[in-house]
Amino acid sequence: MSYDFCRAHPAMTDLLAALKGAAEPTRLRILGLLARAELTVSELVQILGQSQPRLSRHLKLMDEAGLIDRFREGAWVFHRRAAEGVGAELAARVVALIDDSDPGHQRDMARLDQVLKARTEAAAAYFAANAAQWDRIRTLHVPEAEVEAALDRVIGADRIDFLVDIGTGTGRMLELFGARAGRGLGVDLSHEMLAIARARLDQAGLVNCQVRHGDLHALPLADGAADLIIVHQVLHFAADPQAAIAEAARVLAQRGRIVLVDFLPHGLEELRDRHAHRRLGFTPREVAAWGRSAHLDFDLVATLAGDPLSVGIWLGRKTAATSKDGPLP
């Protein structure tokens, strides 16, 4: 293909690069695996039985061709089939053509199941060792089932294009609402929590949902990317809650929604010392004020009384003043 043709037809060039990137047996096997789960190089080594340098080379070429996405999380790098672009479309079609009855593919899937089982067991062990602190807090407010039922009513049953769960923790919000979304992404700073979330998403079969290491004050997302943002029991940990709200507003689509779940004001100072809570709940007035500064309208749409902790659910939308299409519904 000539240089002039490439300049005139960039989409065709991207397609050609994606085709070249997929045209190798090991890379086809990798695509089949990454369509099921996010994997590190070491996990792919276990499954495919090939050397790390060789697989790293394949992954680099596939990333450059737009077939896969790479996400660094501390010392680890996770890989998954690309979510957007020409390479993503080609990868999806290639994976759909893989014969599930092929013995080689079945061996790959069986080894993948072993890797995911080991991941689940490791995450479960960490959670078991640290569950006491979460259980302690749960006894202080209304049952989670009631909070989740109220949240379900607020979010509704409509289809969500792109769901973002800020401070995803163990991925519970993605478990609850990921099936309603075209894509779901959870962001959290805790590597241990992300390991638990990945395991739970794998168990739930939510291949459309992913988790990423990131800070709620600097989300790894483009402006206006998310249709629904959930901030569930996270804001009281934030160093700067107002800045966190502003950052969420940045990545919210013009007609999108933010659902904030957190404690109403309380006096349990022990939560600061024992559980690193920076704030002891929030008043509707201050949440509304933070919303206005970020061009969001926040309404307290549900109050769930507990003893001694009560939970509030706020629904936020971008204000009409920021809309390019006129007043929001």
Rank of each mutant, 00 (worst) to 15 (best):
R272C: 02
G214K: 07
L55G: 02
R138K: 05
I47M: 07
F237Q: 06
R272L: 01
A302P: 01
F127R: 07
G74D: 15
V251D: 01
C6K: 13
A204G: 08
P220K: 15
A157T: 12
M173A: 13
L176N: 07
L19C: 08
A249Y: 01
R183E: 08
A83P: 02
L268W: 00
A253Q: 02
A37S: 06
L16A: 08
G291D: 00
A197F: 04
V211C: 05
L39V: 06
A150M: 11
C209K: 04
A129K: 08
G171Q: 05
P25T: 07
G104Y: 13
T170F: 12
R212A: 10
S190F: 03
H58R: 07
P265I: 10
E247H: 15
Q133K: 14
I98Y: 10
A118E: 15
R257M: 12
D108H: 15
L34C: 11
D307H: 09
V207L: 06
H58L: 03
D113R: 10
A35E: 09
E175N: 03
R255S: 10
D108F: 09
R80S: 04
A320G: 12
G74V: 04
S310H: 05
A132M: 10
L48C: 06
D202V: 03
F177H: 05
L112D: 00
W314F: 09
A11F: 09
D215C: 08
C6W: 07
A131V: 15
V311M: 00
K318E: 03
L176E: 07
V86H: 01
A244T: 14
E247M: 10
G104L: 13
P103Q: 09
G178E: 05
R111W: 12
P329C: 14
D299H: 03
P329S: 08
A246T: 06
R107S: 11
G85R: 04
F127P: 09
E43A: 01
G49I: 06
L235A: 15
H9K: 03
I160Q: 00
H266K: 09
P241G: 11
G182M: 13
A83I: 08
L31F: 02
H191Q: 11
A289I: 03
A118R: 10
L61F: 04
A321K: 10
C209P: 04
H295D: 15
L252K: 00
A125D: 05
Q242M: 14
I166G: 01
Q46Y: 12
A129W: 03
P220G: 11
A157W: 11
